[in-house]
Design a protein around this nucleic acid. Structure first.
Lengths: 151, 151
DNA sequence: CTAATTCCTCAAGCAAGCTTGAGGTCAAGC
DNA sequence: GCTTGACCTCAAGCTTGCTTGAGGAATTAG
């Protein structure tokens, strides 16, 4: 694994255009992942004369946003929609980022709340061994009363 | 969707043996899922004269444990191992359940902690728009210093 | 007895998120 | 100008956790 890529001084020489390998190294995702994201409409590129992908630096920020959103548990399709909802599908600015992160924060909060509830129920039930269909909160997440005959 | 299955009075009549359909109705999982769990070694059955699966009632508790563990985010292979680690692979008793839930609680705690940290970082970074590779905690989860040239 | 269920066993498919491989082109360094 | 490494395009494969379907046997209600 190369930490640096001194070869291809073209990186700074060309000023802007990044090759897929450059983006992979700098964003920390695999080249195949970048291809994949492109097929999913999460990132975009143009081609040079030799049909190779070229990116502007802002793809790095887009990839960063994608990775953060993924950590919050947002699926790629939703990430794509959120990014596409940016006025001209541009690189997120500070204001965009605020909107995106607030949007995803709500989902994150809910997931945390659900897991915390589960943990508390787990604590409450540790040792009880009941797992009673009609009474145990663990077995009855949505407090659903089933008429299927108790456990 | 039947809430009750009055047909097949054999359920109570046979005292113990449950058919796969009985288990599906009472545990709330699909028949195909029970088949699947069996191929994965999560539950067990014997066959009647006509090659149909028969279960004892304790399969209901095993399925309950499986579902709870899944909610905590434990993959099936680990659930299988945990259940298999019970002395004679028996139905979890209160004491077993205590061990299992304590084991899984730790993982649950960690996931909650990670998501909470992420949420806090998200809060801290909302509006900053930096996403700086070298400084932003969101982009640098493990506090990894890369020599790849900053963003 | 007969018709309607239920159950059986494979095999294949699905969704998400990528990776791997084959076969071939492009570009950079000496 | 030639070698090497980076790229290209499909297509197929992988993992997890199941569902769906085909073709056929067993069970059960009436």
């Amino acid at each position: 694994m190369t930490t640096r890529a001194p070869r291809r001084g073209a990186i700074s020489a060309t000023k802007q255009a990044l090759s897929v390998g450059d983006v992979a190294r700098r964003s920390g995702v695999a080249v195949s992942t970048l291809h994949f994201y492109e097929t999913r409409g999460l990132i975009h590129s143009w081609r040079n004369a030799g049909n190779q992908r070229r990116y502007t630096r802002d793809v790095l920020r887009r990839v960063a946003v994608i990775k953060i959103a993924q950590r919050t548990g947002v699926p790629l399709t939703e990430i794509r929609e959120a990014l596409a909802a940016l006025p001209d599908s541009r690189t997120p600015t500070a204001a965009d980022w605020r909107r995106l992160s607030e949007r995803w924060r709500a989902a994150l909060d809910e997931r945390i709340a659900q897991l915390t509830l589960l943990r508390d129920q787990l604590d409450g039930c540790i040792g009880c061994g009941c797992l009673s269909l009609s009474q145990c909160p663990l077995r009855n997440p949505g407090d659903v009363l089933g008429g299927n005959g108790g456990d």
